[in-house]
């Protein structure tokens, strides 16, 4: 048996205390209470959970801390909180309330030291650097046929950063990130499958685990992402609307020769 066991991680986007899932981050649909959904996925065999808080208000810090508190009352598997975490103090509060990891995205791009600050205070294991990446249109510059390039975008996919995704991931690792949560903005919400080239480029360049995200539309997409080098897959819509259960996903992955927790 292999010594790596792929993790299946349902992702819950939370807005003002309710789970929502956007299609390309714009169109939102209500899918339930976060703690209830977390327990539901736990029972199905989810290996971890990720909460991305997209609340856009001044109450943001309170809402993520409260969610961490409520979740750790009921859930005894690891969970990550992300969404707008931009300082050490918020990370401290979230971890103290029972979250295992914090995911930082835009704030890490804007101030790279935030990664090392959280890592040196609480350890690399709790720092997930979330990277939203978008394919760069290389055709325009006459580079058709060459290796694809990806640019890091921030602010929920709205702002191009000018950073190369592979370079930024490597830098994040050097600064103390324990994991990379890698989302393809081109695939997110499309159900066309994970961006395998992106996954493979980033996973191949790093020694820390990479979680593939964005685009899962069927169970074979999960298998492909692991084969491309991801050690975990993030899944949202595929599970939220009951198309497949986590247990079905695991059974399928096992049949395809990918070791998962039984």
């Amino acid at each position: 048996m292999s010594d790596t066991h792929a993790r299946i991680i349902p992702c819950l986007d939370v807005d003002a205390g309710r789970v929502v899932k956007g299609v390309n981050f714009v169109e939102l649909r209500d899918a339930g209470d976060p703690v209830e959904m977390a327990s539901f996925y736990n029972e199905q065999g989810a290996d971890e959970l990720v909460f991305l808080d997209i609340t856009a208000s001044s109450d943001k810090r309170r809402s993520v801390v409260e969610l961490a508190h409520k979740t750790s009352e009921k859930l005894f598997i690891p969970f990550t909180m992300g969404g707008g975490i931009n300082d050490l103090e918020t990370a401290r509060l979230i971890l103290k309330e029972g979250a295992d990891k914090v995911a930082i995205n835009t704030a890490a791009v804007e101030r790279k030291d935030l990664i090392s600050e959280i890592a040196s205070e609480f350890g690399s294991q709790c720092v997930v650097v979330a990277i939203d990446a978008k394919e760069v249109d290389t055709k325009e510059i006459g580079a058709e046929g060459s290796t694809k390039k990806y640019e890091v975008v921030t602010h929920g996919g709205r702002t191009p950063s000018g950073l190369d995704a592979v370079e930024w991931a490597r830098q994040a690792q050097d600064l103390g990130a324990g994991e990379i949560l890698l989302t393809s903005m081109d695939r997110d919400g499309t159900k066309d499958g994970y961006e395998l080239e992106l996954t493979s480029q980033v996973a191949g360049a790093l020694s820390i685990p990479v979680i593939a995200s964005g685009g899962a539309g069927n169970l074979s997409h999960l298998v492909e992402a692991v084969q491309a080098g991801a050690t975990a897959v993030l899944v949202a819509s595929l599970f939220h609307f009951g198309e497949f259960s986590v247990a079905e996903a695991k059974k399928y992955m096992l049949e395809q020769g990918i070791s998962v927790r039984g």
Binding site: S2, T4, H5, Q125, E179, P209, A232
Partner: peptide, 17 residues
């Protein structure tokens, strides 16, 4: 055989085992 099936193992180990 194990090595071939698991390519380079990542560190830290972050998973259920």
């Amino acid at each position: 055989k194990k090595e071939m099936s698991s390519r380079a193992l990542k560190l830290p180990q972050i998973q259920w085992n």
